[in-house]
Simulated assay, not measured.
Amino acid sequence: MTKPWWVTALQVGALLLLSAVWSLAPTMAEQVVASPPVGTCHLLSREPPLVSVATSQTLVPQVEAIGDGVYFFVDAVHQRDIDLVRREDIERQLAAADVLYQEVLHLTPPLEMPRYQQADFVMVILRTDQTRGGQAYDEVVRNPSVPECHIRMALGGQVDAAHNLTPAHELFHLYQNAHMMFKQAWLHEGLARWSESLFRGGGQPAPALPADSDALEAVMQSSYAAAAFWQRLFYLLDAQGDVAVPETLINQRYLNGRSIVALDRIYGAAFMPQLFSALHQAGVAVSHREQWPVYGWAEAEQRSLRHNPAILSALHTAVSAYLPDASQPDELQAFMQLIAPLME
């Protein structure tokens, strides 16, 4: 059985003596499009030296995640400025999120996806010069102080994970980046904001899906607010919201005793891998049409709204495969008819 990533982190962390990484794995997408190792491991030669922050031995006992681990790093000049209590809570939230995304949403961890075959781990950089916020990066990189290839995210070193879901949000972005090239805000940020409801609990069915082109355009021009669109769609696909959440995950706590996962029900959890797979395949189709490397899109193209028809096509394909037309509620059928003429 694969070792928990926090155990592996202890072993490898002793060798690296540098910051944070965690793991992820592929979905059905890679079964559809098999590919050899791809991409380039970019050298960040101008980055300041990083040093590791040791991982905790008490992290999420009895819960296992697939992959090589999460390693925490900090700029060498700021290594004494890390609040170890907050770092511990960040670590616990990330561990729980990784398990939740894999075992409840059935998503493949990033490091097991073709895009990141050259990456050895996930690095979490704690930025002590900022108190909150975070950013997930999408390239495989290395630097003189960390020569192993990795993917990474950065978090404010003072993020209070017991009251802030930025770590889990950014980890979800790494899952997205591994599966798809699309970064349109309504998809990228909307879905990541929706993922936060897995920790807060109490996810509501949300307002009705767009019923006309103006309402649909408003969603596709939005960002975090698009979480309501995804929540409603998932509710219509799975109104029961029954999921099996590992008991060990439900029992996890922050250092102050607060539950990490306040989960009562999740709508459409079984639909998520189908959606990610369809979006992956849509991205591959765009790459072939445009004659781009599958994982080598310019950043502007990843965010360009001109690819919304491809996203709508993937959405239509995933919904149709998951819930045939005859079984769809009227509201969902009307939405599918609305987007059909707009698909690529």
Rank of each mutant, 00 (worst) to 15 (best):
Y137K: 07
M220H: 06
A119Y: 02
G157K: 08
H307C: 05
Q117S: 12
L105Q: 00
V319C: 03
D212R: 09
A215I: 01
Q281D: 12
H150L: 08
Q302W: 01
G201E: 03
A65Q: 15
A29V: 04
A278K: 01
Q291N: 12
A285E: 13
Y295S: 13
E148G: 03
S259M: 10
E331F: 02
G13S: 07
V60F: 09
M1K: 11
L233M: 10
Y295N: 14
Q333F: 03
D212N: 15
L171S: 07
Y101V: 02
A262T: 11
S23H: 10
K183V: 07
P48C: 04
N251T: 10
A278F: 01
F72L: 14
A300T: 12
E344Q: 14
S195N: 10
A244L: 08
L279T: 10
T166Q: 04
P207N: 06
Q118G: 03
A14W: 09
E139P: 06
L50A: 04
N143D: 06
L43S: 08
V74R: 11
S223K: 05
L15K: 13
R193K: 08
S213V: 13
A298Y: 02
V245E: 03
A95F: 08
F229D: 09
L249Y: 15
E64M: 08
S222H: 04
A162R: 14
L155N: 05
M336G: 08
V294T: 15
D89T: 04
D160H: 11
L15M: 09
A76S: 12
P324A: 07
N256P: 09
P293C: 05
A54N: 06
D129V: 03
P167G: 08
V284G: 13
G134H: 03
I311W: 00
S327W: 06
R193V: 15
E47Y: 13
H78L: 07
P147I: 09
E217G: 09
A318E: 12
Q135P: 12
V77G: 12
S145P: 00
M1C: 09
M28Q: 14
Y295T: 11
S52E: 07
L44T: 00
P48R: 15
L59Y: 01
L338I: 01
R127P: 07
V60A: 14
E331R: 07
I66F: 10
R87M: 10
V70M: 11
V70I: 14
A244W: 06
H42P: 01
H288S: 10
S320V: 00
H169I: 02
V70R: 09
A262K: 13
V141K: 11
F271C: 04
L44H: 13
W297Y: 00
P61T: 08
Q328Y: 05
C41S: 11
L233G: 13
M343W: 00
M336D: 02
L107S: 12
V140W: 01
I82G: 02
Q291V: 09
R92Q: 09
Q11W: 09
A211N: 11
A218W: 04
R265V: 04
T40G: 02
